[in-house]
């Protein structure tokens, strides 16, 4: 297929997708709309995590970094009185800066040691929130975080406290962020991230400072994690240290592993599929207590039986579909079946 035709093809698909996403909240109940907002925020979280995994490092502190963004944004808007959109941006920047500071000790480690080191660093930050009532609010966290408020345009009042309107805000922010993440991955920096992961000795031998690129990926990933945290904070209005504990991290890890991280859509697939099953199906069927077990089983099954994630199914399925569509002479079994 020529490049241009393929591009217009995928643009058309993207337009269809967004039309669906914009219409989606009207097909859902109020509580499902709320889950939709969280899902949108979590998509950004897991996608920022994917950028970090591109360089081959798996962190267990990413949710705490998200919390850094949430706390920073909440404090900037509540204690300093800054406008909410500005404090969200500050949340992202602070998360990135904290990651930058942490990267100096953490990137002396690799593999399992990085995993444990990032966990330790995250727990220390979380315990600091817990310990220091001023300004972090201690175990109870920060309450009454300012929301986006209401704006009036030509007689219409738009209330950003409503899930549907907040969903559109989150969708816009997340879309822009994902576009930036996508451009980064396609840029020379992104290709270097891949090289750092798969060929780090080779990359070093041609003069690539692999540590510098690992740090870059970590800081950029943390910035977007911080943005997702800020989106969360100004929606729920209350944040506390437990909201960013290691259990939440396990969920993010599960989304990334179940979806797969080789493609751009893998983690989105994983997050959306699991959140829909977990929060909508299981909750409404009344299996609340068994939901961690569901995550556990899914995690084990996907490591054992689908180690490349859900994304590895997509080419296979699309190949099947394409064979069905484009084959001028379909297999002879089917017409016979139809004739009988």
């Amino acid at each position: 297929m020529p490049e241009e035709r393929r591009n217009s093809h995928s643009l058309a698909w993207l337009a269809v997708l967004y039309a669906g996403l914009i219409a989606l909240p009207y097909a859902l109940s109020y509580s499902q709309q709320e889950i939709l907002v969280f899902t949108t925020i979590n998509v950004l979280l897991v996608m920022s995590y994917r950028l970090l995994t591109l360089t081959g490092e798996w962190s267990l502190g990413h949710v705490v970094i998200m919390g850094c963004g949430a706390y920073a944004s909440a404090l900037a808007s509540k204690a300093l009185g800054l406008p909410v959109p500005l404090s969200m941006l500050i949340g992202g920047v602070i998360a990135g800066l904290i990651a930058w500071a942490l990267s100096y000790p953490l990137f002396r480690m690799k593999g399992f040691y990085f995993l444990i080191g990032s966990f330790a660093a995250g727990e220390i930050i979380r315990l600091l929130w817990k310990r220091f009532r001023d300004p972090f609010g201690g175990p109870k966290g920060i309450k009454r975080i300012p929301d986006l408020g209401t704006i009036e345009i030509g007689g219409f009042t738009i209330d950003f406290y409503e899930p549907v309107t907040y969903y559109y805000v989150a969708l816009a922010v997340v879309s822009v962020s994902l576009f930036i993440l996508w451009r980064i991955e396609r840029s020379p920096i992104g290709l270097t991230f891949h090289a750092v992961h798969w060929q780090d000795k080779l990359a070093e031998s041609v003069g690539v400072d692999t540590r510098r690129y690992r740090i870059q990926a970590f800081v950029i990933a943390s910035f977007f994690a911080g943005i997702s945290g800020a989106l969360l904070a100004h929606y729920v209005g209350t944040i506390n240290p437990n909201r960013f504990n290691v259990e939440e991290m396990v969920y993010v890890l599960t989304w990334a592993i179940v979806g797969g991280t080789a493609t751009f859509y893998g983690p989105i697939l994983g997050a959306v599929a699991l959140i829909v099953i977990n929060d909508i199906l299981l909750r409404e069927l009344g299996f609340d207590q068994l939901r961690p077990m569901f995550y556990g089983l899914i995690l084990i099954c996907s490591v054992l039986f689908l180690p490349k994630g859900l994304e590895s199914l997509v080419p296979r399925i699309s190949r099947l579909v394409r064979r069905g569509n484009h084959n001028p002479s379909p297999p002879k079994v089917q017409p016979q079946e139809g004739a009988e």
Partner: peptide, 17 residues
């Protein structure tokens, strides 16, 4: 090795439930 680690996280959730 990472697979074993991830599987043990899954098992942890199952035991807790």
């Amino acid at each position: 090795p990472l697979g074993g680690l991830v599987a043990s996280i899954g098992f942890l959730l199952i035991l807790q439930s």
